[in-house]
């Protein structure tokens, strides 16, 4: 589902953010990517969404070779990858329903499909009753669930989460992780970048640890081996 082959990413400012990364994530896997600040985790996510291009190496996501992907085909590719971020990135002037519907609207789904898909998605993330609420009226955990609903409403086979619990208290963090686990059990490949070693250790999933742009460990049912 995701293949990286000797990927190097160097910014113009100096040492490489990613230094020869190779990894393989199979369809339906749940993978944590951990590492201290500056280890290259966010750069990795940006490469997987084609926000950045690698300096060298090959990246294949959902059978698409990103180095050969033409600019005009990027939107279509991105529909196969859902993204969730630490800061939720919700549209503050729109309510819960509109935020989720937005994802369908911009890929030109019909009004009928939107009316069918959005409430169904909100039920999955347990926010059906709050569809009229605006982001400022929701807790951090609820906002993140809206972001997850928005990322999943177009049914992407891959979900990338960049520090999804970074702004949440422990209880909400656990709720979000349980939700991600349920989504994974439904068949979606989930990649989570996180600092939260407590959750990572408890969930016993595959853990890839990065340090200074390199993969230093890849445990199938592991925990976080380095502390910040």
């Amino acid at each position: 589902m995701i293949i990286l082959d000797n990927v190097v990413k160097t910014y113009s400012t100096g040492s490489p953010a990613l230094d020869g990364i190779s990894m393989h994530v199979a369809k339906g896997e749940f993978v944590f990517i951990m590492g201290e600040s500056g280890s290259g985790k966010s750069t990795l996510i940006k490469l997987l969404t084609k926000e950045l291009s690698p300096t060298s190496g090959k990246i294949i996501v959902n059978n698409t070779d990103l180095s050969k992907l033409k600019h005009r085909n990027i939107p279509k590719f991105r529909r196969s990858v859902g993204c969730v971020f630490q800061d939720f990135r919700l549209l503050k002037d729109r309510n819960v329903y509109e935020n989720v519907a937005f994802a369908q609207l911009v890929i030109q789904k019909s009004a009928k499909e939107i009316r069918r898909n959005v409430p169904a998605m909100l039920s999955i993330v347990n926010l059906a009753e709050k569809y009229k609420s605006f982001p400022r009226e929701l807790s951090g955990g609820e906002q993140q669930r809206v972001a997850i609903a928005r990322a999943l409403v177009n049914e992407p086979p891959i979900l990338l989460c960049d520090e999804p619990t970074g702004n949440l208290d422990p209880r909400n963090s656990w709720e979000i992780m349980k939700l991600l686990e349920e989504i994974n059990e439904g068949g979606t490949t989930v990649v989570v970048v996180t600092h939260n070693s407590e959750i990572v250790n408890a969930m016993q999933k595959r853990v890839i640890t990065m340090k200074r742009g390199m993969i230093v460990s890849d445990e199938q049912r592991g925990g976080y081996i380095y502390e910040d």
Binding site: P75, C83, L91, V106, N154
Partner: peptide, 17 residues
């Protein structure tokens, strides 16, 4: 800018943006 970034990540075409 924020809304445009979200649209791009979701897979909106250049035309829609």
């Amino acid at each position: 800018r924020e809304e445009i970034a979200i649209m791009k990540l979701i897979g909106a075409t250049d035309f829609v943006v």
